[in-house]
Design a protein around this nucleic acid. Sequence first.
DNA 1: GAACTCTTGTAAACACCGTTCACTGAAACC
DNA 2: GGTTTCAGTGAACGGTGTTTACAAGAGTTC
Lengths: 238, 238
Amino acid sequence: MTEATRRERLRAETEREIRQAARALLVERGRDAVTLRAIARELGITAPALYRYYDSHDALLRQLCDDICADMAAALYADLSLETGHVGCKVRAVCRAFRRWALAHPQEFALVFASPRDPLGADQFGSVFLQLAGQLIASNLVATHADDEVPEVLHEDLVRFQQVLVDAVSVHGVQIGEDILNLGKIYHVVQSWVRLYGHVALEVFGRFPFAVSNPEPMFDSMLDQMLTDIGFQEDQVS
Amino acid sequence: MTEATRRERLRAETEREIRQAARALLVERGRDAVTLRAIARELGITAPALYRYYDSHDALLRQLCDDICADMAAALYADLSLETGHVGCKVRAVCRAFRRWALAHPQEFALVFASPRDPLGADQFGSVFLQLAGQLIASNLVATHADDEVPEVLHEDLVRFQQVLVDAVSVHGVQIGEDILNLGKIYHVVQSWVRLYGHVALEVFGRFPFAVSNPEPMFDSMLDQMLTDIGFQEDQVS
DNA sequence: GAACTCTTGTAAACACCGTTCACTGAAACC
DNA sequence: GGTTTCAGTGAACGGTGTTTACAAGAGTTC
């Protein structure tokens, strides 16, 4: 089956172990503990050997980010597949899953979502949200928002995002027309991402303006409001 | 006037220089460049000398955070004092100032607002928002939100925040009754903080789901929505 | 099977880091 | 004037990323 030579297999295995060790260090002792020497120590090799696999410490951290995104996407998809209701229920499920994941993996969340990074970011991870947003928009459950609700200066950017959404959805075999996917809806999806990210980041970083004893109801309440704003009725989301 | 001895004056001056050097390193070369040795090099002294001023590298970073918060609060107050309109205008001004500050100081923003920190955070900085939120709530311009709009599980936390707000405002000599400061209003203030922080952090960290060519109109648009949600009329905020 | 190359690892070294410790010299105090 | 206080030094320890020269095994070629 796999035509990998012995050398290729060993190399792949070592690389897997490197990622695994890096991840464990990040989770257990924070970003600053993800050290080439610490990783090497874990594998029973020396630090310079890692340069056969990664160009630099920074490149290894970038790889770590990608791994985290992929794992999170997998976790969200898993939670999503458990939800068999209509689209509103799925949105709710994936938003809750995102919060749950972030709280369970604060170090990973900080590394991926709160570092003044290069250009991009979303990568693997974004597809979950994009696909869901696409489904959401394609669904008839979404109320129509007028295009002139959104300032005209935003149109150009939203049209670009529109294209991103269409592409993301079409990858999964669903076709949607541009008439359904109007700018008002897209604008509300972006606003929902702002609120979702805002709440989760504030909670993970402990930056609410006061001590919240139990943030979950506050999150759920925000989710209700979000879904209502997007256009779901109350009885479709609970 | 100042009864400081020569030694005390020198010490205070050195401490000022340490903070200044640490800040410059953070701004110009990022968090990881704020090292004891780099700071000492800048001052023309040796690294161990810094231990006469701070217990550890970590303590110095904490001090740096406090300085940043204080500076940001000063910047926000400065922008706020330029705005002579009613409370709605002031809220808008300070929110815009917050975004402007964050974009101009990404490293500082990341350090203060996006690190999995100890318990608290707000400190000096929070008082700007708290005072403004207090004024906002005390103002008659704010529409009334019914208490039963917010889930009952949140009441306990919101009541605590209510007290924080009352205290923050009373420090500035303004007294407000609990009847004006009802839970519905407080809930919307918290939600506004979520959206404000969410947008700014996403912009600073480049985590919008697509490339936004000009995020400012999107921010202003969100601000409009925020102020409307809180209860301002359109003509009171523009 | 011998000679060869390619790959994966090592050891040593360099410059940097936080931190500790014994010390010096000058300022402050009595 | 003698003593104490204290900012600063230099050396050292163990840690870091990274480069370099080198060894030794795996895969390939004849």
